[in-house]
């Protein structure tokens, strides 16, 4: 806090300048929130979500029962060549052990180097947005801390159908700003070279989504 106090003078000066700049007392127009806040009536949000995630070159598999889930996860992990899988603490993802991969629980917290050496991570999510194909993580149950889904090169995310909302406003309304959030829309990507999109830079280069229920 000392450093903050040291800037007391700058603070006063800036706030004074801004108040003086507003001497004309501008009256902004009222904010009209006439835009859509809810999903369009009749929209199959889960179907739309699957479609939009796939547009980002992420793989989406829809499963309807526990048996499906197991075989789908098994296929995805085998295809990605995953042998060690990081999972958050208190995870309800323990069923993944049945797939024959080694589970590494983030407890005590893995250091960055150790985490970087693990091929893959599996998590749940806070919610998902159909219209934009976005998964939101907020470090809640089954998600773990932020670094967990960042350093491994492969991210398997399990999304329950009842977690999918229609629009961005619906998502914002359900989220708690006090929790750190990561909104994920497809794998890490860049268009910095001739605006040609390349999937996979620093974040996980592969994103697989299992959509259950």
């Amino acid at each position: 806090m000392e450093r903050y106090e040291a800037n007391r003078e700058a603070r006063t000066v800036i706030l004074d300048r801004l108040r003086t700049a507003l001497d004309d007392r501008p009256k902004p127009p009222p904010v009209r929130r006439a835009y859509r806040r809810e999903r369009p009536a009749g929209l199959d949000v889960v179907g739309r979500f699957a479609e939009r995630v796939a547009d980002y070159e992420a793989t989406v598999l829809r499963v309807y029962d526990a048996q499906d889930l197991l075989s789908a996860a098994s296929d995805l992990l085998r295809e990605a060549g995953v042998s060690r899988l990081a999972v958050p603490t208190g995870s309800r993802l323990a069923w993944l052990t049945r797939l024959g991969v080694e589970l590494v629980v983030d407890s005590p917290p893995l250091d960055n180097d150790a985490l970087g050496e693990i091929d893959a991570v599996a998590t749940g999510c806070a919610l998902a947005i159909a219209e934009t194909g976005t998964i939101v993580l907020d470090t809640g149950p089954d998600q773990g801390r932020r670094a967990l889904t960042l350093l491994p090169d492969y991210h398997l995310c399990v999304v329950r159908a009842d977690q999918v909302v229609g629009t961005v406003p619906e998502a914002v309304a359900r989220l708690n700003p006090r929790r750190p959030q990561t909104w994920i829309s497809g794998p890490s990507a860049t268009s910095d070279i001739e605006l040609e999109r390349v999937e996979g830079v620093h974040g996980p280069r592969t994103l697989h989504v299992l959509l259950t229920g």
């Binding site: 547009d55 917290p109 219209e131 006090r178 750190p180 959030q181 909104w183």
Partner: peptide
């Protein structure tokens, strides 16, 4: 894009994370 790949949001400091 409909949404950029990553959006990060944080509020101050979160013990044990970041």
């Amino acid at each position: 894009e409909r949404m950029n790949p990553y959006t990060s949001m944080w509020t101050g400091v979160t013990p044990g994370d970041g």
